[in-house]
């Protein structure tokens, strides 16, 4: 009883604090459709909470992975990516002090990126990804499209209320860089850089959940 009381007083309040994280997707596309992609998951704002959670076996009925399990999991991802055709120079960083994780690779064409994503999905899901491409680049019309087929709002509704809190203050940022100038983009929230060769789109997870915005975009480049 004593232990429980102490535990409640000390950490009880910290646990109800909600999570906060950012995902950053960066793609640098060459004229021939090849390029480099970096995906960053930054949980640094929530590091105190994560450090507390890391002391537990499980939270909200999810098993809390150990540091070595996290490392092993990433090694598995890197291995799968390395074995994907058209993908090279796969690298990753794991910072368990700030809880920042990155994955990057070079790709021969955006199709290879779609294959990477489908490699981490179920067979059924992989088929949908093939049908509904997440990344596409039309060289003739010089159009780069970022899309996805998930109905995020619907998926989120299927999760438990306590799990949804995780998304309350999360954000997703995409930055795409090109050698040519950007003429137009369909997503009105996206901002084109001063040089016109980069475009950034920052969307809160809440807006995605509520279907107010998405990271989908269609970017037209100069011919």
């Amino acid at each position: 009883m004593f232990k429980k009381g102490l535990y409640f007083i000390l950490f009880g309040l910290l646990f109800i604090l909600s999570g906060c994280f950012e995902i950053i997707e960066e793609v640098s596309l060459n004229d021939n459709g090849s390029g480099q992609v970096t995906l960053t998951l930054n949980l640094s704002r929530s590091k105190t909470k994560i450090n507390s959670i890391m002391l537990l076996d499980s939270v909200n009925n999810y098993k809390v992975p150990s540091e070595s399990e996290i490392e092993k999991h990433f090694a598995g991802i890197v291995n799968t990516m390395e074995n994907t055709n058209g993908v090279s120079d796969v690298s990753n960083t794991i910072n368990l002090t700030e809880f920042i994780f990155t994955l990057s690779c070079n790709f021969e064409n955006v199709e290879a990126l779609n294959t990477v994503i489908s490699n981490f999905s179920s067979k059924e899901e992989a088929k949908r990804i093939q049908d509904h491409k997440h990344f596409s680049f039309d060289k003739t019309n010089q159009t780069f499209i970022r899309s996805y087929h998930y109905d995020v709002a619907k998926e989120i509704k299927n999760t438990k209320m306590e799990d949804r809190k995780v998304f309350e203050t999360a954000s997703i940022t995409s930055i795409y860089r090109f050698n040519k100038s950007i003429i137009s983009s369909k997503n009105k929230t996206a901002k084109v850089s001063g040089s016109k060769k980069a475009i950034m789109l920052k969307v809160s997870a809440q807006d995605i959940i509520k279907n107010k915005n998405s990271i989908k975009n269609q970017i037209k480049l100069q011919q």
């Binding site: 950012e22 950053i24 960066e26 930054n42 640094s44 704002r45 590091k47 700030e98 920042i100 930055i175 860089r177 850089s193 001063g194 040089s195 060769k197 980069a198 475009i199 950034m200």
Partner: peptide, 13 residues
């Protein structure tokens, strides 16, 4: 303290 990113005019982080 926490780590995050800032971007210049050309979105270099």
């Amino acid at each position: 303290t926490y780590t995050t990113y800032e971007y210049d005019d050309d979105y270099n982080e």
